[in-house]
Amino acid sequence: MSGNEKSDGAFRTIGEVATATGVAPHVLRYWETRFPELRPVTRAGNRRYYRPADVALIERIQRLLGTEGYTVKGVQKLLAAEGRGGKIVPPSAASEQSIDGESSPMNSVVAPETIEVIRSIRDRLQRALDAA
């Protein structure tokens, strides 16, 4: 290990986490306000130090928002449900179909009743457009 490398268990500064994950420091600070699960250690001068678990959570939030199509609110619900011991079906394993009949990451956070209401509205709109 060279002089600049840290061990896997070492705390990281916001700049180090930003460089490692590609998430800008201002976005990391914003996520701290939106996700109570993300709480880095703060020391003198309010400097943030991220634990390995924090970095893993950041990478997960980044994947959920950027790749899997979740909204901030959707990720909040997912993390809150997991924190309460609730079972969330991961998007890759979602067996329900979306409104269009396609698999969707939102299936794990949208109630089936809501999907039915949306389908009903969609069908009524389509009938109105067809009649016009």
Rank of each mutant, 00 (worst) to 15 (best):
S95K: 07
P40D: 10
V75E: 00
L28H: 03
I121F: 10
E37M: 05
P91E: 02
V55F: 08
T67C: 01
M106E: 14
T33V: 05
A131Q: 14
G45N: 15
I14C: 05
L129E: 11
A128D: 12
E113Q: 08
W31I: 11
L38Q: 03
P52M: 08
G85K: 05
P91Y: 00
R12T: 13
P112R: 02
A111H: 11
R34P: 00
S95W: 04
R122K: 15
P112I: 01
S104V: 10
I14F: 03
R119Q: 02
F35P: 00
P36T: 10
I118D: 06
L65D: 03
L78R: 09
R84D: 09
A80M: 10
A111Y: 13
L64E: 10
L78A: 04
P52Q: 01
V27M: 09
I58Q: 04
T21P: 15
G101A: 05
L78S: 06
D130N: 08
S120K: 14
T42C: 01
I61E: 08
L57S: 00
E32K: 08
M1Y: 14
I14G: 06
I115R: 09
G66C: 13
I61F: 06
L65Y: 12
E82G: 11
A24F: 06
M106V: 07
N107G: 01
R34S: 10
E96R: 04
R47S: 07
G69I: 04
M106D: 12
I88Y: 08
Q97G: 02
R60Y: 03
Y49M: 09
A44S: 15
V75K: 00
A44H: 13
L129F: 05
A18K: 02
T33C: 10
L64D: 08
T67S: 10
A81R: 02
T21D: 13
T21R: 08
R48W: 01
S104D: 12
R29S: 10
V75C: 03
Q62K: 09
R39V: 13
Q76E: 00
Y50V: 13
R12W: 15
V41Y: 07
L78I: 06
N4S: 15
A18Y: 03
T114K: 06
G45H: 14
V17L: 10
A56K: 08
G69R: 03
A44Q: 13
E102T: 01
T33F: 09
R63D: 07
L28F: 00
I99F: 03
E82C: 05
R39H: 12
A53V: 12
A20V: 07
A128R: 14
G45Y: 14
R127F: 11
R43P: 00
E5V: 12
G83I: 13
Q62S: 12
P25D: 04
I61M: 11
R12A: 05
A81T: 06
S95T: 03
I61N: 08
L129Q: 13
L79M: 07
H26Y: 12
R122L: 09
A10P: 15
I99N: 03
A128I: 15
A56W: 06
I88V: 12
L65G: 01
D100V: 06
I121M: 07
F35Q: 11
S103F: 01
K73V: 03
G69E: 07
A94I: 04
V75W: 11
E113C: 11
D8I: 02
M106G: 14
N107H: 11
A128V: 15
G101L: 05
